[in-house]
Amino acid sequence: MSEIPPFHPEWLVSFWLGTPILNTINPHFVLIVLIAVLIFKLIKRRKNTHEHDYEEMQFQLLLKKKAVIEEQMTELERNKKLGEVTDLQYSKIIEEYKQHLDTVKKELLRFTQERVG
């Protein structure tokens, strides 16, 4: 049975074996280490990208929540002017909306401070 020739280019073999420090190191181990480092870097980069995407989605969600609450407050004021909501109902509901809006604004402030800081 004939042996399969190695798939190493001649210039690479002569370079590796002709260099004083490199000829003492097994090239296959060096290749394995390089591949492991490359895989580690790619995984780390992908993880950072996903974390950034998740934070961006959370920020956009908070912006939408803020807009919806402000819309609901405007609608409630219109309903009060039209007489569809009593003063007692209005004050109770508007207070709940204000509390929710304050919470959302605090979260938005936290996100913007983290991005700047």
Rank of each mutant, 00 (worst) to 15 (best):
F7D: 12
H8A: 05
P9A: 11
E10W: 06
E10K: 09
E10C: 00
W11E: 03
W11I: 04
L12W: 12
L12V: 04
V13F: 00
V13S: 01
V13E: 00
S14Y: 03
F15W: 13
F15M: 02
W16L: 01
L17I: 05
L17Y: 03
L17T: 09
T19S: 10
P20G: 06
P20D: 13
P20T: 05
I21T: 09
I21K: 01
L22I: 06
L22R: 07
N23Y: 00
T24H: 15
I25N: 02
I25Q: 07
I25D: 01
I25W: 08
I25C: 05
N26E: 14
P27M: 02
P27Y: 03
H28K: 11
F29Y: 10
V30M: 05
V30K: 03
I32K: 11
V33N: 04
L34T: 06
L34P: 01
L34C: 15
I35V: 13
I35E: 06
A36P: 02
A36N: 00
V37A: 01
L38H: 03
L38Y: 00
L38V: 09
I39C: 07
I39K: 05
I39V: 15
F40H: 08
F40L: 13
F40M: 08
K41M: 10
K41Q: 09
L42G: 14
I43C: 15
K44R: 11
R46F: 04
R46K: 07
R46T: 02
R46I: 02
K47S: 04
N48M: 04
N48R: 06
N48T: 03
N48K: 07
H50S: 10
H50Q: 14
H50E: 13
H50R: 15
H50W: 08
E51L: 05
E51P: 03
E51Q: 06
H52N: 07
D53Q: 11
D53R: 10
Y54F: 15
Y54M: 11
Y54V: 15
E55N: 11
E56D: 08
M57S: 12
M57V: 05
Q58P: 04
F59T: 06
Q60E: 13
Q60M: 13
L61Q: 10
L63N: 11
L63Q: 14
L63F: 06
K64I: 08
K64S: 14
K65R: 07
K65Q: 11
K65D: 07
K66E: 12
K66F: 01
K66M: 05
V68P: 05
V68W: 10
I69N: 00
I69V: 09
E70P: 12
E70K: 13
E71N: 13
Q72W: 02
M73W: 08
M73R: 15
T74Q: 15
T74N: 14
T74D: 15
T74P: 10
E75L: 13
E75V: 10
E75F: 06
L76F: 08
E77P: 06
R78Q: 14
R78Y: 11
N79V: 00
K81P: 03
K81A: 14
K81E: 15
K81L: 12
L82W: 07
G83S: 03
G83Y: 01
G83M: 00
V85I: 15
V85F: 04
T86S: 15
T86V: 05
T86H: 01
